[in-house]
Nucleic acid binder design. Structure first.
Lengths: 233, 233, 233, 233
DNA sequence: TATGAATGAGGCTTCATTCAT
DNA sequence: AATGAATGAAGCCTCATTCAT
């Protein structure tokens, strides 16, 4: 969700206008559309509402994005791209495998917390049976890089003799994602029923530690126990 | 999204059987509505589509359920009720705590697999910020009984000295639910990107074992390691 | 173009209402739609304009006809049906072949004059490459009966020895239709350029006689000249 | 009806050739517009579609032709001009009247076959009640020359004593045009219903001979029969 | 002469819902 | 308990056209 610089930086001589700055218009639309789709889903979102919260008009949305589904698809792509951009800055290759894994889990957990719109859009995609994701070669490529990071950690962990031989990178990714994702995606129903105690700051840290321990514990050879990650923020 | 012929003439020979049987009509509507809401979400579902797949007419849906949201709410309640009915038959109180926990995890994992409509409806509720769940006292009560089972296991595990003292029933429930839920809820996007290898029968068993191990491992005192649950079906 | 009985004949006890009389509503819509499509073509016609000239609402058009193309298709079918209904009342089989042919030509010429909407709709269909006609099995059947009448006349004319042996019913139909159709279809451009002299009553009769003579002349054996049909109305 | 990408970026390498050549740009636009109007009618044609098939942009169409109706009008004028250009090369004045008439009929029949776009545009004009033709003095003048040719033939035929005294040039023109026009204009509906047998090459020749015979027969004195034109290609 | 960006008006269609019996 | 007909509001999208350079 890139922020739009409100103080217009188009240093041309055109006054205080938004006009003639296609890229800013595009970003403005994408920003608003992301919020709306995340808030109401695909069919629940109203094009008119998006336009109203935009600096431009309904007509321009169609000009740049074709139709509602085209806009939705590009929102999805932009979000995935932002996620991967974050992951790429982790420099996991520099760290020993266990620490790399810990860092990756922490990053994933925190990232999902900080980008609920991303989580919600993925939920929505799942409601739609991944129909739009399927058509995006871009997203598929972005995700490949995600699994490659996990594979690299696994390989190094096994070479070092600290990871079990039967560790499976894909299942490990599933393991990490499931908890980091659920923590955000199901917060409304969970806290509605059981209260929101788990989402106060301290308990979120405890949950994150729980996830780190569970994930790391699942790959370590049984005789190679490490100290727990509890409160290791 | 197939078009529905609006002129609904269902005056065929299904007269004597369906008429004058209100409860059967109700159940028929609920059954279809569950499928439709699960498949398309709340705003994505069309009342006309529900009616078309029903043995009765659109008018009757309003007669019995008031409006779309009323129908959705009752679908939600019926699903939660069915879930709890399953849980109640577990008889966990009979088992020693670790075995009870193992059984609960296995049940939860399997149950979610077998009831994707339930999982999808909960996703949809989360998209809607649990708005409808909030108004249902019935559902809240049903969920309380869920957490009580976990609390009982925890209490007994700690009394027996096999569970850690800081085990938190709510976090334990979170832990179990997260993986069991994600396994179903995010299958479309996950398998779209990485292939559906994890959803062949054998790998699902492995994942379930992974979940059992992780959950049980997270509550056991560190010196009380049990044999892994791998393939313990 | 069937007329709608403005003095409502629905002898039920409902007051002065149109409501609850689906067939009248349907006919009302078809009547207006025929005029509008004939006047402005398919894409030139506005659904809102049709609705405004109707006793019902835009919504009901969609209720009964699905969409614009569905309505257009039914207009087309209704028009073709009306034409054939007229032809069927000719009783051509009773007449000797030459008189039957003359009567058929006169009927066709007059019919097209009296049903410019039909002619215009067929023009519009041709603009659309007969796309909608193609999907209508009803229209195809109706037209078959038209050619059969010509075939019967040809067969009898050849049996009687007055028609040439190489007369081709299909070409004969083409011959008749071309002039009767053009006389209506191209009147606007023709009279715009050359004045509308040919469309005063007397000249139309002359044209009709010209058509009868030309058509009959084209099928008669050369030694079997008949008196001209001039002014034979 | 293909979707047109609205963001029209044609800044490719076709710079030096097309720029700065106004007349070529005009002709290019007219060529495409003729096809589009002929294919879809006036209201059915999309300015964006024309632009997309053009070597220039939508903006230029407005620059050169003002608006859609202006473009349509110029398309119409250009087509009529091309038709008359053909007719002028016939040199009918050189031939004896009957041969001149035969040649004119053959030319008209063949010309319409070879210029379906012209025929279709005239159909479209008739749909619009000749509204645009009315405003074009150019077209009116062009058509006058057409009738003058027929008048000249009639006058010479009557002087020679081979044509009947009551032959009317305008009706003769109507007679010729009707069949030549219908043969092209109504081919879609006719062949949809009865098959396209009449439009194979040989049958078209037979139809053309039929037209020549019918037209010539309609003007000749009854005692002055000529050999038929059958297969006189 | 040429252009990418922008737009207001209005097009077709669909929605959940109610009416009248 | 049940029904076919009816509906106002609003949805998405497209159109010919103009703006600003």
């Amino acid at each position: 969700m890139q922020k739009i610089d409100e103080t217009q930086t188009d240093s041309q001589l055109n006054r205080s206008r938004w006009k003639q700055n296609p890229d800013a218009v595009r970003r403005d639309i994408l920003r608003v559309a992301t919020q709306e789709f995340a808030a109401h889903g695909l069919s629940g979102t109203r094009m008119a509402n998006i336009a109203a919260k935009t600096k431009t008009s309904k007509r321009m949305i169609y000009y740049y994005f074709g139709d509602k589904e085209g806009l939705y698809g590009q929102v999805l792509e932009a979000l995935y791209a932002a996620v991967r951009q974050g992951e790429d800055q982790l420099d996991l290759a520099m760290l020993p495998p266990v620490e790399a894994l810990q860092k990756l889990v922490v990053f994933t957990f925190d990232h999902h917390c900080q980008h609920p719109d991303f989580v919600r859009l993925v939920m929505i995609e799942n409601i739609h049976h991944a129909k739009y994701l399927r058509t995006s070669e871009i997203i598929r490529q972005l995700n490949k890089s995600a699994i490659e990071k996990v594979q690299d950690i696994c390989r190094r962990g096994q070479q070092d003799g600290v990871f079990r031989d039967d560790v499976d990178a894909l299942k490990l990714h599933w393991h990490i994602s499931s908890m980091a994702f659920f923590n955000v995606s199901n917060r409304p129903t969970f806290s509605e029923v059981f209260g929101d105690r788990l989402w106060i700051s301290e308990e979120q840290e405890n949950l994150r530690a729980l996830v780190v321990d569970a994930v790391v514990g699942s790959v370590l050879k049984s005789n190679a126990k490490l100290p727990t990650a509890k409160k290791s923020k």
